[in-house]
Write a protein that binds this DNA or RNA. Structure first.
Lengths: 137, 137
DNA sequence: TTAATTGCAAAGTTTTTGCGCACAC
DNA sequence: GTGTGCGCAAAAACTTTGCAATTAA
């Protein structure tokens, strides 16, 4: 599997325009979960020719190609992240909206176990835990 | 804790209009995760005087009162369910959008464990597992 | 009585799309 | 060269809100 987003786009046979390269580069350097407005702002800073319509079209294209993951964390906007980042799950603070990443080997096993219990194999699982995290004393 | 949604509304001191009673009754009998359009359709069938603006205002009110849970399962529409149903989690089929409910005692324990590992106590947790479930042979 | 709630229509947000021009292949 | 992608602006989809009339308590 190629490493960068741009390389994966090329491997998928996507036509690479300047706009797509810029958006791919922005996503590559991103380690949070930007929404379209945020991606548009970051991409525009590098190349003012980019329109927000192209950002919408591009993230949809990349998501359908399996290059990006789309999330809806509860604020009404879609958020995106690189689908090939090291696997992790999300804890979403329902009060503040903050997203905390975590990875736990036990929960990885459980995801498979739960699917098996329900009679399924699970393709491409990911997990979101919603709650109000309160700092322990 | 009172049992029905209407009773919980009254216990919270919410002013109970005919519209709110109708929407509460619809939610009470609902065992899926309807969006606002669907709730509006079901409520309108009982009382055509209800407007969609009232449905939006009412689900928001009920959610803020802790009577309903709001979900965004990835299709861009908010969905609602009774917050006092027996605790369960959701497996969302990323391919079809279908929502499968499940409950697993091990994962209940893990939700607390993960929060503790991250240094938190968790208030009101719930969990969503996204993947493409494939029926086992 | 009176403050809260409603319906309606307008407006706000987020996302998609039609079209003529431009570009990647 | 040709089919795909782009910017722009309009539209669609979802949600919120201002206002005058109505209603619960």
């Amino acid at each position: 599997m190629p490493d960068t987003i741009t390389e994966r786009c090329e491997a998928m046979g996507l036509r690479m325009t300047d706009q797509r390269r810029t958006i791919a580069a922005v996503l590559q350097e991103t380690h949070d979960h930007p929404d379209v407005d945020e991606l548009y702002a970051r991409a525009s800073a590098r190349d003012p020719r980019i329109s927000i319509a192209t950002v919408y079209r591009t993230v949809k294209l990349f998501e359908e190609a399996g290059i990006l993951e789309k999330h809806e964390f509860g604020d009404g906007r879609a958020r995106y992240e690189d689908a090939e980042r090291d696997h992790h799950d999300h804890l979403i603070d329902m009060h503040s909206g903050e997203v905390i990443e975590f990875c736990d080997p036990d929960i990885e096993k459980l995801q498979e176990k739960i699917a098996a219990k329900l009679g399924y194999r699970l393709k491409g699982h990911r997990l979101e835990l919603y709650g109000v995290p309160i700092k322990k004393d």
